[in-house]
Design a protein around this nucleic acid. Sequence first.
DNA 1: TTGTAGGCGTTATCAG
DNA 2: CTGATAACGCCTACAA
Lengths: 335, 335
Amino acid sequence: MATIYQVSELAGVSLATVSRVMNKSTKVSEKTTKKVQEAMAQLNYRPNSIAQSLASNCTNSVGLMVTGLSGAFFGQMMAGIESTLRRAGKHVIITTGHSEETREKDGIEFLKSRNCDALIVHVEAVSDEYLIDICKGDIPIYLIGNYIEEIKENCIALDNELGGYLAATAVLEQGHRNIAYISGPVGKADAQQRLLGHQRALAQYNISDNEQYLFTGNYLDTGGRDGIKHFLDNDLPFSALVCANDEMASGAMTYAREYGLVLPRDLSVVGFDNVIFARHIHPKLTTIENPVYQMGSMAAKLVLKNIYQHNELIIEHHFKPSLVTRNSVAEQIAK
Amino acid sequence: MATIYQVSELAGVSLATVSRVMNKSTKVSEKTTKKVQEAMAQLNYRPNSIAQSLASNCTNSVGLMVTGLSGAFFGQMMAGIESTLRRAGKHVIITTGHSEETREKDGIEFLKSRNCDALIVHVEAVSDEYLIDICKGDIPIYLIGNYIEEIKENCIALDNELGGYLAATAVLEQGHRNIAYISGPVGKADAQQRLLGHQRALAQYNISDNEQYLFTGNYLDTGGRDGIKHFLDNDLPFSALVCANDEMASGAMTYAREYGLVLPRDLSVVGFDNVIFARHIHPKLTTIENPVYQMGSMAAKLVLKNIYQHNELIIEHHFKPSLVTRNSVAEQIAK
DNA sequence: TTGTAGGCGTTATCAG
DNA sequence: CTGATAACGCCTACAA
């Protein structure tokens, strides 16, 4: 592997000059530039990025931690991040947190140990204090899908409350009044926000808050299954089911069908996130569009702007969900 | 950020000694080891991995290129790779190839430019010659889901032919004889292998090869849709449909239902890959298990063994698919 | 067992 | 505009 030194020799210039033509930092005469470029081509020279990093104290790599690599949700998010970072010539180093506190902390440490220029993380288990704390640390960290007031400049988040509200109105407007809700885990902020939005919509329709219609799931299809089982077993009258994400909606639908219900005739279902498979399940799922790809892309832009001086970029910290109407909600005729 | 030099000062030893206790390379007396560790703790010392890389010519990072980040298939693959690499303290740098030749080549170059110790790639568009060529290059490259005779030691692959065979037998054994097949793109080796296995199974049942029953899809749900449309429009009698992957099976099923067919009564369907959503679609898809997670993990082990001297690891280059029987295949009574 | 010193391939700060 | 030369933080013979 040729080094910058050999290039300088062959071109008959100093090593500093070679560095200059690479980085276009200072002006170099056209003539010498050409000489250098020819020498580089002849030697098939490739700069050693590690050496560059050491000398410049900039690794051109950003660390990314997500809960898991599989799963449509994070796939979209990663895709958004990777594509805009890659276009800017930045490398993304990836790791997982598995939604467990120690593993999330370990993951962040792991990324830090690699001298990333910045971190983009989607955490679920770690406390806000911890995040605020490391935000003050040596390496900048950006949060996606997580809004913390104290460090809001570093956050890209979705208006989950609005999403929950929209999901509820999707069935309310079709005449449903007995609406079961399968929520996400208590500990997760987005789950709480979605539930709040749901309750706001119900209140608007003068439906009193009823614990009976609430089940706390785990964001997995098993949670949907357990939830609908719970409602069915309790002999509750309900014509609609709103789930805090698509996985749970899918699990619930599968079980409902096994139970003998015809969808959406006997039960209307709404999901959340609009993951890819939402249109594969039958009936096609009415759900809430969660613009994760764009949010990922925006998080990447945020680091480009703050860390790599792409000052022209315009940052939008808040994203709005929207309703995607498909076939899983039927009209409910008032009795 | 403290450096090794400051640690050495505080501990009252030479800088080389500090390096030694970090790397456990040479023996260091217990006493000095302790002194050094205390100094490190006191200064909250973290080694600079970039400097380590430059000096040792080992970055402890492996590059990974996949077609896309979203999608259940690659998610599983990445998960397998990341988890075993992470456990070994290796960082994974990720990028995408998008199944296009130039982008795949660019992706590999991009990874190379980062001085990864090795590359793991899943390519679809690039030629075998190209791969064989870069295998001889400076940086070791490993292929997943791609078998090339000349560099088989660097490949981790699935027996796709067997998979195709198993998928066909799933319907043949239920009495189906008129079997439509939606294949993957002509250019992809795995698609060809799956088709070959399909044809072998048909031959065993003395079913003559019939072009009419073959449609070439794109591995996306739209391909499934186009495929079944094609068969339906051609007024072919067929009671079963085998698809070369689950996405196409899903697309085909959706369209079949829109067309008015009742599944699996009117049409039995088999997929391939057993991606997550295969159990979410209705009826639950009978498909071929593709052990991508394990293959990813094995690819990671391969680089651990070859690059990082984890000699105890045992490598398995070939993986076998298996049939996952669910509810999308019905028995066909002979007329 | 420990210390010395040269080098890894660049960048960056000075002069010139 | 160009050239020395000192960092950057660590590893690793080679010596002691």
